[in-house]
């Protein structure tokens, strides 16, 4: 059908021109074929069976990393001189779109398998015993940067609120609509800190005001910023990037 239309529309033109156009069309189709062949890598990844296999392997890698995780193994700490300046900003939006949380009205909400669900204001959180760490933040993209964070040891906070530490997961929802979740073993790791300060200053909005959970044993995207609420659960909560295919455990 198409071909006949083309021939009719080309009627009256010289056979040489027609041949030249046909040749061009052939080349164009050949090029698309070539492009299609090159695309096969993406298409292979999109195939449902391949997707299932890859997700299955990612689940296996979650278990392998959970098994490899040593609750007493500490992430290396660095001297002040090793701190990366300026520390890179990274999120699923640009730095001028950073969410501004009002600290005065702020309350950290607690849900799920927690005994004391009373929300926490910032002054209450600042009064808890604080500790600092200078550790390497490693991004899933490959780059890394060293920073200093200060806050309360997360395991102490979990004990204080009566969290059921025999549960499997802790999930976080954030002011910027980000969400993520971690395993209980990592939550109880001595270097996992609920931090309120960065480089000895109140955590600036771009680094996650009012608080960021700093986990030096996990990749950067597993360290939620602007935390509004947290919940303890036995049901897999997923995460913003995790639901799109990033490995859930993502341990370092």
């Amino acid at each position: 059908m198409k071909r006949r239309t083309m021939e009719t529309s080309l009627a009256g033109h010289s056979p040489k021109l027609i041949r030249s156009i046909e040749r061009r069309l052939f080349l164009k189709q050949g090029l698309s074929l070539g492009a299609l062949a090159l695309l096969s890598g993406c298409e292979l990844t999109d195939d449902e069976g391949v997707q299932r296999l890859l997700m299955g392997m990612s689940g296996l890698n979650d278990r392998a990393q959970g098994w490899l995780f040593n609750p007493n193994k500490l992430a290396p700490e660095y001297p002040e001189s090793a701190i990366t300046k300026p520390f890179p900003f990274n999120a699923f939006y640009s730095v001028d779109e950073v969410t501004l949380v009002d600290g005065k009205d702020y309350k950290l909400e607690l849900e799920g398998l927690i005994r004391e669900k009373k929300p926490w204001t910032l002054p209450e959180l600042y009064e808890l015993p604080q500790t600092s760490q200078i550790t390497r933040h490693i991004c899933v993209e490959g780059w890394s940067a060293i920073g200093k964070w200060s806050g309360v040891r997360f395991s102490d906070f979990l004990a204080r609120i009566g969290a059921d530490t025999s549960a499997k997961y802790i999930g976080f929802t954030c002011a910027d609509d980000y969400y993520t979740s971690i395993d209980m073993a990592t939550a109880l790791h001595p270097q996992t800190l609920l931090t309120f300060r960065f480089a000895d200053q109140v955590l600036p909005p771009k680094y996650g005001f009012p608080m960021k959970l700093r986990i030096p044993t996990k990749l950067g995207f597993k360290n939620p910023k602007h935390i509004m609420s947290m919940f303890v659960t036995n049901e897999y909560p997923g995460g913003y990037w995790e639901d799109q295919g990033y490995n859930w455990f993502s341990g370092s």
């Binding site: 090159l38 890598g41 990844t45 997700m55 392997m57 899933v140 990037w241 990033y246 490995n247």
Partner: peptide, 20 residues
Amino acid sequence: ELTLGGWLAGALQWHFAAMW
């Protein structure tokens, strides 16, 4: 065009599957 996975997450899935 020479890479596999379509985007970073897909590439990481392939990398950590073929690893085994």
